[in-house]
Design a binder for these strands. Sequence first.
DNA 1: AATGAATGAGGTTTCATTCAT
DNA 2: GATGAATGAAACCTCATTCAT
Lengths: 191, 191, 191, 191
Amino acid sequence: MATNKYEEITKAAVMLFEKKGYHATSVQDIADEVGLQKGSLYHYISSKEDLLMQLAHRSIQDFNTQLEEILLNSAMSNRERMHRAIEHHLQYVTKNVQLTTVLLREAFSLGADQHQVIQDLTDKYLNLWTQVIEQGIAAGEFRPVNARITALSILGSINWVYRWYREGGKLSTKEISEIYAHLFLEGIQEK
Amino acid sequence: MATNKYEEITKAAVMLFEKKGYHATSVQDIADEVGLQKGSLYHYISSKEDLLMQLAHRSIQDFNTQLEEILLNSAMSNRERMHRAIEHHLQYVTKNVQLTTVLLREAFSLGADQHQVIQDLTDKYLNLWTQVIEQGIAAGEFRPVNARITALSILGSINWVYRWYREGGKLSTKEISEIYAHLFLEGIQEK
Amino acid sequence: MATNKYEEITKAAVMLFEKKGYHATSVQDIADEVGLQKGSLYHYISSKEDLLMQLAHRSIQDFNTQLEEILLNSAMSNRERMHRAIEHHLQYVTKNVQLTTVLLREAFSLGADQHQVIQDLTDKYLNLWTQVIEQGIAAGEFRPVNARITALSILGSINWVYRWYREGGKLSTKEISEIYAHLFLEGIQEK
Amino acid sequence: MATNKYEEITKAAVMLFEKKGYHATSVQDIADEVGLQKGSLYHYISSKEDLLMQLAHRSIQDFNTQLEEILLNSAMSNRERMHRAIEHHLQYVTKNVQLTTVLLREAFSLGADQHQVIQDLTDKYLNLWTQVIEQGIAAGEFRPVNARITALSILGSINWVYRWYREGGKLSTKEISEIYAHLFLEGIQEK
DNA sequence: AATGAATGAGGTTTCATTCAT
DNA sequence: GATGAATGAAACCTCATTCAT
């Protein structure tokens, strides 16, 4: 099914990094998983850390691309944008729990330079969210909240999902999205 | 200055685990930090992992104790309880960022058994939050939301704070609390 | 000269375990002996203990195989069998003093599980000897002695040889065998 | 019951050395056993190795003393001497299995110098046995066997008993002695 | 006599990576 | 492209011993 060996290695790494953690996964483990010798892996990857980097990078890029698309759609209100952003984020997390876990839990293990690259892309993602909120406030759709803190709080909330979501649970991704969207838009207080 | 060597070791470990991560911190690093030989550390700790365990355990216990106190206070409405719980949680996180980081980021590095102990305490904490929400719903204070998912979303949000909070930032802990409390209670939507 | 690195390691280990003892021999010592880095040894062995296990196992297996062959030879009287068994045992001990020493002196250093495996094979060997004696009694060739104790006493005696035998001594293995065989068959008493 | 602390330590060491082996027994283990701190032990012993030395020394001295007494008894025939020597040796082994084990299994762990001291006393013991046999041959009581090899074979046999003897077994020490004495004097062959 | 903190050397093992074949 | 031998640094931990109190 794997179109090529690198993809295979990548999949094995995601799976193992998620299951055992980056540090606890040895290059040997990955080699075993794809049926190669340890040494042979190095025809495809330049280092274990680089493998992690590629994965984290791919994941955060996906998040950014996805959010940019939503923002570029001029037909939506900011309320709708927010709703869609939450929905897409959660969809990505739940459809790619392992990869998301690698990004959110393991990227910290990267060396300072590489980590900074991921950090910058993460900041960019945060900024896009902040922007949606600011636009919503400007348009009178949202209350005049602190946009950055609010973005951080929403993102923290929906990122956290990788920690508890398991496929085949009671609620569909769609249902979870609705709960989250409603929560952030309306709050829990009875009016 | 240190009243007790074990506390000193504990502090060094928290600091190093937060800065470099558990795996990247060697026993040598800790020994250097407290001015002991590597071997001498083992008069105080039984293993590096146990050191991590003690720290994580202490932290999650603190969280639980704190929340239980709020719940036992019968004079409050559930709305007030929620508000106070958010405030206390954030206060703990911001006053103990390093320790909280060790709990939330590094506990995963514990062996299965130890990790389960922490997990169980964490679940207990989640259940206490869920309980507040359920009581609020029963009392007509909150909308009839899915209590567990809502608890998870709020907790994820306020836990995430360890990832971006830095002492001396623009906002005080109190102000951050207000933003979070308002968000979860009222939502961001303009009425 | 070595056809195979693992054999080389094995030989070095036998030599060192015999000379210095298992505990006093470090993995470093073995590595030095074969001209490898400490870490490189682990391409060939899974642990120092396993190395000991392999050696002990090989040795006791040899003993068993050898004795079984004698027992399967139906052409012999039990007196002849006993004589041959003593001779072969002594021949193995004197031709493989180092390996025998590892088996008899160091197997105790194995962990409980591994040690039990060796113990079971040793018991099996004892049982084969007991069997020869019992058959000899049944056939009227031997006096009606306690077969098990007698087997233990003979085995103790010929095992002990590893403690004093040195190549190039006054007596040949053959001569030593004759002395032992005569002793156990006839006793020392003048008739 | 212990008349003094040193005796207590000595007993603990014998027990532990026998159970776990000299190397696997830590000074901590011994301290725990007698209810002292590790450091406090050194008021009584000069080193762990010295402790082993004292025990081995005591044991081999006992063997020698015992045998010398038998030899000094001029009233006995050499046949009787041999019988008594076997009986006393076995009695010592079975009454002091732990201590005998320490002598026979662990003395090898002593440093070269100390080990030589034990070796010399052991050689002396062997010589006493050889002497009995030689006297018996000279007196026409024994066949003209190789006295040293015969002594080694008998000693090996009765030393080996520490490997399988367990208190409360089917046979009494007396019965075991008879079997051994008979074996070496008469052999197993039916006349 | 007893403590317990501290040492420092040494032990086994793991592991990412390289490279000749 | 694949192997697998080899590296060498670093990891965690143990332990006999010392010594000031």
